[in-house]
Amino acid sequence: MFYPESIANLIESFQKLPGVGPKTAQRLAFFVLTLPREEVVQMARAMVNAKDKTRYCRICGNFTDSEVCTVCADKRRDSSVICVVQDARDVMALERMREFKGLYHVLGGAISPIDGIGPDQLRMRELLERLKKGRTQEVILATNPTVEGEATAFYVARIVKPLGIRVTRLAHGLPVGGDLEYADEVTLSRALEGRREL
């Protein structure tokens, strides 16, 4: 297609976004052209700003724009509980439920031998250092219910238990609002394993 270079560049940039194909990229690009100049500038600034300012929290590895993230900086949070997750986006997901009052630790991935990712590539040492400071009484393992996530949970449990800290794993259960008969066998058997007294 024969677009002026500036538009072609914009379309190409949008195509780098996840889930955006050539057609959507074209639509987005033409939409941008219809916006007032100030709004376009604001949008571009927001992107650059987020990119420049976003860092990882020195303590837990969560996203932050200062040294320490809002969770770690909040004195009302319960520092005796640390919830271990794979990704900083998982912190956002858990925070949305507004029920968990403890702290987080982001590993930055999961153990995966076939991808060459071992404990050394994750923020495992940082976790141990935090735990050795002695305030933690419980570690909640909230890694994904996948082969890699489970392997990571087992690994963390093995190194944390000798420190005399309680280790728990997020329950695997049935999706809320779903029909039992449509659940797959793995989910069902995990849900049965994790049943509890009523």
Binding site: I111, P113, I114, V147, E150, A151, F154, E185, V186
Partner: peptide
């Protein structure tokens, strides 16, 4: 349809690593 999963090997890092080594 799942016949069997060997994913329980993931409780032991050495076994999981070998299983994935076979796969690779």
């Amino acid at each position: 349809e799942r016949i069997k999963s060997y994913a329980k090997l993931n409780s032991d890092l050495e076994r999981l690593a070998y299983a994935q080594y076979f796969c690779e």
